[in-house]
Design a protein around this nucleic acid. Structure first.
Lengths: 222, 222
DNA sequence: ATTAAATATATTGTTAACAATAGTAATATC
DNA sequence: GATATTACTATTGTTAACAATATATTTAAT
């Protein structure tokens, strides 16, 4: 495969899997040495990751793993609600039995991963489930947008939620969504999706408040 | 302003205003000469325009103004329906009188442009109206996605619609949407938006069919 | 001992030269 | 004359050296 693509995916994967916490510096020569490539190539990759909002770039200083704000997370989830509810609504009267079957396979594999203690894999498969739903609409623009959101979500959760919170999709919700879709119960399917995402959002938005370093307050007693 | 940004916006503007038809070759040295900048800078700009899908890039051959397919246009409009209906739904019970006022100013300016024969300006202001609605939701992710769609739309219309078709937003629709929003009639506002976009989409999807160069058919009598 | 200034180092940003590739024209071969 | 081969030109892609900037360290001054 094309070298640039390989390096891009390595770094992207490391960010998505939360192996590099937000704020981690990404030095060009360092990365170039690690992957055995020239600095120019790293530069292109970092530039792409920056426009994907997985990396923050400060001119003349460098790149670091992105640190999404609380508002970023809220806007992300609000938009995700819009898109995923639309996805479910559209799939409700268009899914074939074989498509439902392949979705059920996903859910089973996801459950196995969680039960086997492989949370990392479970989280990945959860995202894949949501992605798969979008893909089945056949709308590539919609898929692209949702993929964008799904990619940014782990950083949001990492930045803003407690480390002990499980951060996983609730598996039975996925199953219930499929049941409702199979039954053609559109309203129910949308409703479960809505609550499902709301619950996920609840995992971070409660815990941390916007880090508005309010200098006023800090120096109020000086 | 930063040189790269300036050049980016010049080229972007030329594409958005349909001054360069889809397929137009964008040669690096040529552009570098025109803007009096180095080739490396042009390269970065073209790369960014490519990920914005305004430019197609063929490895080792070069860049050209993007040629969106019929399916691209359909997916774009389907997603736009989802986003803009959500925007209207959200604004229905949150718009302040002053916000409605500033939106009305937009519509007036748009109408003046069309009546003054400046279709170019009118089309631009139409897009600005839709953008403004999204901006008033305060959701930056949503705005980013809709802006992306609005930017790609002129190329879709150019690629796929008849040259004589007016390609403009119907001005009174905008006014009617505002009226419904002001009256707090959410269902009506959404309905007008839906029809409005459907009408816009109708301007291209009817006219041209996917250019599936079906070699089978061409050589069927040989 | 603290602050300020100067120096050194590390890092990003730019560019000009080179390499690789694709497209085009010219030449040779049948 | 049509086709294949070769040489040429235009264009994109890569790289190593250089420039500019920011950070860290040292030195000097009070």
């Amino acid at each position: 495969m094309k070298q640039e693509e390989t390096v891009y995916q390595y770094i992207e994967k490391a960010i998505l899997e939360n192996r590099m916490p937000p704020g981690t510096r990404l030095r060009e020569v360092h990365l170039a040495d690690i992957f055995g490539v020239k600095r120019g190539l790293i530069r292109k990759v970092l530039s792409r990751l920056t426009s994907a909002k997985l990396v923050d770039h400060i001119p003349n200083v460098g790149a670091q793993v992105a640190c999404p704000s609380l508002k970023d997370g809220q806007d992300l989830f609000a938009t995700r609600q819009i898109l995923e509810q639309a996805v479910v609504r559209q799939l409700c009267d268009s899914l074939t039995p074989s498509q439902i079957g392949s979705l059920r396979d996903f859910v089973v594999r996801e459950q196995e991963a969680y039960q086997g203690g492989d949370t990392q894999k479970g989280v990945g498969l959860s995202a894949r489930f949501h992605r798969q739903l979008a893909e089945l609409t056949g709308n590539r623009v919609l898929l692209e947008f949702l993929q964008d959101i799904l990619n940014r979500t782990p950083l949001v959760m990492m930045s803003l939620s407690q480390p002990d919170s499980t951060r996983a999709c609730i598996n039975h919700d996925h199953r219930n969504i499929l049941d409702a879709l199979e039954a053609g119960d559109c309203l129910k399917a949308v409703d479960i999706m809505q609550q499902h995402l709301q619950q996920l959002e609840g995992m971070f938005s409660v815990h941390k408040t916007e880090p508005t370093i309010d200098l006023e307050k800090i120096f109020q007693d000086t």
